[in-house]
Design a protein around this nucleic acid. Structure first.
Lengths: 208, 208
DNA sequence: TATCCGTGTGTACAAGTGTTCACTAATGTG
DNA sequence: CACATTAGTGAACACTTGTACACACGGATA
């Protein structure tokens, strides 16, 4: 029988979270996962689950927190690598897509959670997106590319940008990870979406 | 005991479909619904389910078909009511929101299905959205409001419009149905999104 | 009128579910 | 070293689940 082996603190917790992500990555929907299923995938006895989470919603919430870290890493990389303003959109989209590929399950979870079952998870993801949009607005303000926009209009623009990219996520996660042609199409389309939005922003007069 | 009562043909089928929608409307995620749960809600014995559907995915697919009808009705109403071009966006958004409210569960199902568990349902909804976007493009062409755009660029614009509206759906379905203030906020925001997009389209030069 | 078929019903069963409980080994704290 | 706490284990529970089967009724068809 499997003797109790003491693991590093928090190791089982991580195993449970990444087990859930693994199942999501295999095409399951988070809302349909059960405690036993997750613990089985994690190679842990069902009762262990309760040592770390109150229920599946709780696990979902903690996944949202980790998702926040992933997004922040992505932002940091984008800020470091996007140097020339004229390629800003192309490069940002490319970075986004490569991160989405590298953390497929995470982003899958995010896309599912937007219309998910748990109100709390939904609100968490939405809040991450708002944060992302506001950071984007700050960056754009700093670059002084959009000086003619009021703060409010800039916020709106960034909101729309983030939404469009998030929607592209569902395209991206729908195609298999090695279908380079399709991925390239999605990359191009997303880029053009953003260009269109920024053309709109450039000619926007806030006398709404 | 409940004697077998002969119903109108197809009645049980409809009861099952609307039972699933009801559960979705109550906050459940479609992917987490079970056969027994749906039949219970429909007031029907579990075995009856198999007379009409092979499994839950099958039911989902048939819901997508009905969703198509709902969308078409919405389009028809929009075409009939949007007369003056200058209020086109406002009125369309208003019609969309009122339909989304009137068919809350249906649209909830749609929002869930976009990142759902069944690839077939996912593809079905995506296809409905493509159809919607292409119809929108046709209408705009007919109105001759966007003559300077190539067909391809117009398609892209409409695609972005439909996506933005679909994303607003998740906002809308997140607030309670009688929170008029929030709904009004969403209506305004969605309207401005579309205005921004069309400003972009108006100044778009296709030398991409 | 006799027959068939679609559709509804009840029973049954094996497998899976969430959760509780008592037990135990390793760890950190005094 | 003694001890409380944490984090693992297995057994057990009361339910729920999907699905199969045999059966019954009513309308269409012959």
């Amino acid at each position: 029988m499997a003797e109790k082996q003491r693991r590093k603190p928090g190791e089982t917790r991580e195993k449970l979270m990444s087990a859930a992500l693994t199942l999501v990555g295999k095409g399951r929907h988070f809302a349909s996962l059960g405690i036993r299923e997750v613990t089985r995938q994690a190679g842990v006895v069902p009762t262990s689950f309760y040592r770390h989470f109150r229920n599946m919603d709780d696990l979902g919430l903690q996944l949202v927190d980790e998702l926040g870290l992933v997004l922040r890493r992505m932002m940091r990389e984008a800020r470091a690598n996007v140097l020339q303003a004229d390629k800003l959109i192309e490069e940002s989209v490319a970075i986004f897509i490569s991160h989405a590929q590298a953390n497929r399950s995470f982003f899958l979870f995010m896309a599912q959670g937007l219309a998910g079952e748990s109100r709390a998870v939904q609100e968490g993801i939405r809040s991450e997106m708002r944060f992302f949009a506001s950071e984007l607005a700050n960056d754009l303000r700093r670059l002084r590319l959009v000086d003619h926009l009021t703060d409010q209009d800039l916020d709106m623009t960034c909101d729309l940008v983030v939404r469009s990219v998030a929607f592209s996520l569902t395209d991206l996660l729908g195609v298999s990870a090695d279908d380079d042609y399709q991925i390239e199409q999605i990359r191009k389309r997303t880029t053009r979406f953003l260009q269109l939005i920024f053309v709109g922003a450039a000619h926007w007069q806030s006398a709404s």
